[in-house]
Simulated assay, not measured.
Amino acid sequence: MSSVSESSFRSSSVCLITPGARRTTLRTDDGLSIEAVYEPCTAGAGSAADPVAADAAIVIAHGFTGSADRPAVRRAARVFAQRAAVITFSFRGHGGSGGRSTVGDREVLDLAAAVAWARSLGHRRVVTVGFSMGGSVVLRHGALYTAPDTAAAEEQLPLTVPAHGGRTEAHADAVVAVSAPARWYYRGTAPMRRLHWVVTRPTGRLVGRYGFRTRIDHNEWNPVPLSPVDAVPLIAPAPLLIVHGDKDPYFPLDHPRMLVDAAQGGAELWLERGMGHAENAADENLLTRIADWSVAA
């Protein structure tokens, strides 16, 4: 795999959209290597390409302990590719990416690298779709990379976003958060209490590393990153879709409702009957509807 830095994306001219799938390594602004996969849109294969589909790319942000190669992520990519080009990647500490997971904090830099790659491939419209932890990341990314430069937003940046185009070339044109939390440190369900044990305890991090193939950073957040509910009002004017299952065992329905309320009319809410949590629970029908919304929004 070739290693390509984000800075090279910003300095290069826009190239033609790649005709075939490719796997590469991206470099984040804090110097980590992130594995990523690009797949072209399959709409109109063998005929003239749909100009809307050719223009759009969907970047998938997986959940905690996921990766670009997990079956549920590959299934989502396959469905999305029927409507637009797709980029999948593994967050830091997951799969073949470097570093350790910060469980939603610096992962915003991983997503920014993937979005910048999509634009370097010629896609003028980029939509981020995040699941669970990835849902919280797309919300923060949408706030930090599309909102005007306000003092409140600047104070919450995990690292300084480069002045040479980080905000303009790594922004999302629309945001979809599936099964996302509204607030940090939530322990109101048994699955979330187990997750906190994995993240905060030495023994739990060993289980994460060898049981779930996820390397977790032992440091506490400092400062605490912008929460999802506080990020949501900063995403406008980009369209925002919140998707949540009414059988989600991790986050009850007050989470998506809090997010939509915080958007003050700037978000659409889909409550999915019988759906569980994140990419593993998203069936093909829901994924197709998300892809259609992403292209049309």
Rank of each mutant, 00 (worst) to 15 (best):
S2L: 14
S2R: 15
S3T: 15
E6K: 08
E6F: 15
S8D: 15
R10M: 09
R10D: 08
S11Y: 10
S12L: 09
S12V: 10
S13V: 13
C15I: 11
P19Y: 03
R22F: 09
T25P: 03
T25S: 10
L26T: 02
S33Y: 11
I34Y: 00
I34P: 01
A36N: 00
A36E: 05
A36I: 12
E39I: 11
C41M: 06
G44H: 08
A53C: 03
D55A: 14
I58R: 02
I58K: 00
I58T: 01
I60Y: 00
H62N: 12
H62I: 14
F64E: 02
F64W: 09
A68P: 01
R70K: 13
A77W: 11
Q82G: 13
Q82C: 15
T88I: 08
F89N: 01
S90Y: 04
F91V: 05
G99P: 01
T102Y: 02
T102D: 04
R106F: 06
L111T: 05
A114C: 08
A118V: 02
L121N: 00
R125E: 06
F131Y: 15
M133Y: 07
M133G: 03
V138R: 01
V138S: 00
V138I: 04
G142R: 00
L144I: 12
Y145T: 15
A147M: 07
T150W: 05
A151C: 05
A152Q: 10
A153Q: 07
E154P: 06
L159G: 12
T160H: 06
A163C: 11
H164M: 07
E169F: 03
E169H: 14
A170P: 07
H171G: 15
H171F: 10
A172D: 08
D173P: 14
V176N: 01
V178A: 10
V178R: 06
A180H: 10
A180R: 06
P181T: 09
W184L: 11
W184Q: 04
R187A: 04
G188E: 08
M192C: 05
R193C: 08
L195W: 04
H196Y: 10
V198S: 01
V199A: 05
T203P: 09
V207L: 11
G211E: 05
R213H: 14
R215E: 09
H218I: 07
W221C: 01
P223W: 09
L226P: 07
V229I: 12
V232Q: 01
L234K: 02
I235Y: 07
P237Q: 06
I242E: 02
I242L: 07
H244K: 13
D246G: 04
D246W: 05
Y250M: 14
P252N: 12
P256L: 13
M258E: 14
M258V: 15
E268Y: 05
E272V: 13
M275T: 10
E279M: 08
A282R: 04
E284V: 13
N285D: 14
L286C: 06
L287Y: 08
I290M: 15
A291K: 00
S294I: 10
S294C: 06
V295K: 00
A297P: 05
